[in-house]
């Protein structure tokens, strides 16, 4: 088959289908990919913030020390195993054992959130630590409490370092969604794979898929650049 013909086949299969037409599947896959990445990041931000708080506050009592140990193990696990493994473990082992029934899409969202939480916590922690310690000292020396100084002085400065890196984390998540078909969730990769295998013709569908991924990523990294610039504009010199 020459390329023209292959494109012809692909176009046809976009319009084929009984329950769902081909292009509707693609849109469905795109929507799921976006949903998993966006919700995953949101859950990740919540979890990551909590972990970063535990990591950054001074450790005095046994509660903070225990919490610190727990989150250390958490981060080590989610950064130390592949996302696929985490997905498979959750979908086929953990959730059935706990008696939780969830769709593969929901499981994917939860796992992406948990995974991203580990990475986001590190992003936030390093963002907070990158603020000059003198800022905290100055706040404390005036009599402001630790929490107040954090909230009024440290966090606003850390956000400038954190936001652009969070954008990069989002890009990573989008690309990683291609593994959710391992547990049967429908995403961008799985719909193009489906179209390809129904015609025994993969070249055009996979090419199309790659282009969609790259366009998504380019759009987001463009937004991140814009955000970076506007953040830097506020520390005018």
């Amino acid at each position: 088959m020459n390329l023209d013909k292959k494109i012809e086949v692909f176009k046809k299969s976009l319009m084929k289908g009984t329950k769902q037409k081909g292009y509707q599947r693609v849109l469905q896959g795109l929507k799921n990919t976006a949903t998993i990445a966006v919700l995953g990041l949101l859950i990740g931000i919540v979890i990551g913030t909590l972990i970063a708080i535990v990591k950054v506050i001074p450790k005095r009592g046994w509660i903070s020390k225990t919490l610190d140990k727990i989150v250390t193990v958490y981060v080590a696990f989610f950064r130390g195993t592949p996302m696929v493994v985490q997905l498979l473990l959750s979908y086929y082992v953990l959730f059935p054992l706990l008696g939780i029934k969830m769709s593969s899409l929901a499981v994917s969202i939860v796992v992406f959130g948990l995974n991203s939480g580990a990475y986001v916590s590190e992003i936030m922690r390093s963002g907070l630590l990158s603020v000059d310690p003198g800022q905290m000292e100055a706040g404390r020396a005036l009599g402001l409490g630790y929490g107040m100084t954090m909230w009024k002085i440290i966090v606003p400065q850390a956000v400038k370092n954190i936001l652009p890196t969070l954008g990069n984390e989002f890009i990573t998540l989008i690309k990683e969604t291609s593994v959710v078909s391992f547990v049967g969730a429908v995403d961008l990769y799985s719909v193009f794979n489906y179209i390809g295998s129904s015609n025994y013709e993969f070249m055009v569908p996979y090419l199309c898929m790659a282009i969609i991924y790259i366009v998504l990523v380019l759009i987001i990294s463009g937004l991140v650049k814009l955000m970076e610039r506007s953040l830097r504009a506020s520390d005018k010199r």
């Binding site: 000059d132 003198g134 800022q135 000292e137 100055a138 706040g139 404390r140 020396a141 005036l142 009599g143 402001l144 409490g145 009024k152 002085i153 606003p156 400065q157 520390d235």
Partner: peptide, 28 residues
């Protein structure tokens, strides 16, 4: 924290709050 309110401190590296204006630095 109460004692520190009575003790002012000036640092070698100034340590003004970088995210606040001069006015807000003083009034916070």
């Amino acid at each position: 924290n109460l004692a520190r309110q009575r003790i002012g401190m000036v640092f070698q590296q100034f340590n003004l709050f970088n995210n606040l204006t001069i006015l807000d630095n003083i009034t916070l």
